[in-house]
Amino acid sequence: MRNIIKIVLAILFFICLADMPYGYYQLVRFVAFIGFSILTYQDYQQGKQTEMFIYGVLALLFQPFLKIALGRELWNIVDVIVGIGLIISIWKQPKKSNT
């Protein structure tokens, strides 16, 4: 489930680089807020403090209630960095032992 959330969010962020209607960006903010909130809660349950903090900050950054005006260029940079970070985090997960 975690990987699905990360992949969906990464795809949504990369699509943000195209010239989309404003409603799409609002949808992305809402979906990102929910996705990052879920990831934050899961990391809280697993005791992963660093990841919990990162996803919590991202949930606040993308939250749809109070718009954070960074400008289109800066938002594009944020979208790319977060999208790449999400993809990398899928492959950097610690391997589960068989014991």
Rank of each mutant, 00 (worst) to 15 (best):
I7P: 03
F30N: 02
L61W: 03
Q46L: 13
C16I: 00
V8N: 05
L66W: 15
I11C: 09
F13T: 03
L27P: 04
G35Q: 02
P64S: 07
M20K: 12
Q26L: 14
Q45P: 02
D43P: 00
A18V: 10
M52N: 05
L70I: 11
Q42L: 12
I15H: 02
F62S: 00
Y25N: 05
I68E: 04
T40R: 04
I15D: 01
F33D: 04
A10T: 08
D43E: 14
F14A: 05
G23I: 12
L70Y: 11
F53Q: 14
G56R: 00
G47Y: 10
V57M: 15
Y55H: 13
L27Q: 06
Q46V: 10
Q49N: 11
Y25W: 09
L9Q: 01
K48L: 10
T50C: 06
D43C: 10
Q26S: 14
I11H: 07
I34R: 04
V28Q: 01
R29K: 14
Y22F: 11
V8C: 06
L17H: 14
I54N: 01
L66E: 12
T50E: 12
F65Y: 15
A69W: 10
D43K: 05
Q63I: 03
I34E: 05
G23H: 12
A18R: 13
F62Y: 15
L66A: 13
Q26I: 15
M20H: 00
I34T: 06
F33N: 03
L9A: 04
L9Y: 02
A32P: 03
F65M: 14
F36Q: 03
D43Y: 07
Y24C: 05
G71L: 02
L12R: 04
Q63F: 01
L17P: 05
S37F: 11
R72A: 11
I7K: 03
L70D: 06
K67E: 13
Q42I: 10
I15R: 00
D19I: 09
Y41C: 07
L39Y: 03
F53T: 14
I54T: 09
L17G: 12
A59P: 04
Y22S: 12
L61G: 06
L39A: 02
Y55F: 15
L70V: 13
L66K: 12
F53G: 02
G47W: 09
S37W: 05
L70C: 08
L9G: 07
I11R: 03
K48G: 04
I34H: 03
V31D: 03
A32F: 01
P21K: 13
F14C: 05
M52K: 14
Q42M: 12
L12P: 01
S37D: 03
D19C: 01
A69C: 07
I7H: 01
E51D: 13
G47A: 09
Q63T: 08
M52H: 05
T50D: 11
C16F: 01
F36N: 00
E51S: 14
D43W: 04
L17F: 12
P21L: 08
R29G: 08
G71N: 07
L9C: 05
